[in-house]
């Protein structure tokens, strides 16, 4: 028994040691974390929303393909948010729905509903780095922003999006199953909105750039971008997500996000 305790203790110590590496990036005095926490706090209290979206996939030859979907989102206090995505087009996947519970301290829950089989299938949360519906967005790019999942470093302030000034922050995902080694985000200093995001792959080379534009303010407080353009620098492919409409306070409750409601989502 004592031996086991010793072993556990040793393992715990080793883990702590590895988690705080001595080669950590330049000490920014906690500025990166402070800005990122501030970003999250400014977006708290949005409640619930429903959005209509079109996703346009473009390959390196310039061929395009469209997906239409609706997204229902529900804010969860003290944990990650809940989301339900319903696909309308292409028509062969119409009625397919994706339910996700993001979590801060444990693996996310994800289920896919396949209407032809009436089957609810759990998806391994390890798939987070995989492409979302064949697009250049990964599942992990679609989830809610949770500062607890990253280690932040403030890099610099610089001009961005033509007329603005941005904080440039580096975030390192703590989740070993993330597809990224680092993410660099340009947050406008006024509202802390992510204007531009660069994703670096496991070999630390630049993989993708996300540009968000056509920002609109909802409930006098919450900013959402109507255009999201993700460009993959390695494959030459890109994906645009257009949000046609987003409505807040739609009366969604926790009961709209379970495996039973997933089966009647349309």
């Amino acid at each position: 028994m004592k031996l086991i305790t010793t072993l556990v203790m040793t393992t715990a110590l080793t883990t702590t040691f590895i988690a705080a590496p001595i080669w950590a990036a330049v000490d920014d005095g906690g500025k990166g974390l402070k800005i990122s926490t501030d970003r999250k706090e400014r977006d708290l209290g949005w409640g619930d929303s429903q959005a209509n979206m079109t996703m346009i996939l473009k390959n390196s030859q310039g061929d395009t393909s469209e997906r239409k979907m609706r997204l229902k989102s529900f804010e969860v206090t003290d944990d990650g948010d809940k989301g339900l995505t319903i696909f309308d087009e292409p028509k062969d996947v119409s009625g397919t729905a994706f339910l996700s519970f993001s979590h801060i301290e444990k693996a996310d829950d994800q289920w896919l509903y396949l209407p032809a089989l009436k089957r609810v299938k759990r998806i391994s949360s390890r798939n987070k780095s995989g492409p979302f519906m064949g697009s250049e967005f990964a599942y992990e790019d679609m989830g809610s922003f949770e500062p607890e999942k990253y280690e932040f470093t403030f890099l610099r302030d610089e001009s961005c999006a033509e007329t603005m000034t941005c904080h440039v922050i580096e975030s390192k995902p703590l989740d070993e199953f993330s597809g990224y080694t680092k993410i660099i985000t340009w947050l406008d200093t006024e509202h802390l909105r992510p204007m531009k995001t660069e994703y670096y792959d496991r070999k630390e080379s630049l993989l993708k750039t996300l540009k968000m534009s056509e920002w609109h303010e909802y409930k006098d407080k919450y900013w959402r971008a109507a255009l999201m353009d993700m460009e993959n620098h390695q494959s030459g492919k890109s994906t645009r997500i257009i949000t046609h409409e987003i409505v807040f306070d739609t009366g969604l409750t926790d009961a709209d996000f379970n495996q039973s409601s997933l089966q009647r989502a349309r």
């Binding site: 798939n127 780095s129 995989g130 494959s235």
Partner: peptide, 14 residues
């Protein structure tokens, strides 16, 4: 079991 490998052989596939 089902075991998923994301992006094997430097590809885009699951």
């Amino acid at each position: 079991f089902e075991y998923t490998i994301v992006g094997p052989f430097e590809s885009n596939l699951d």
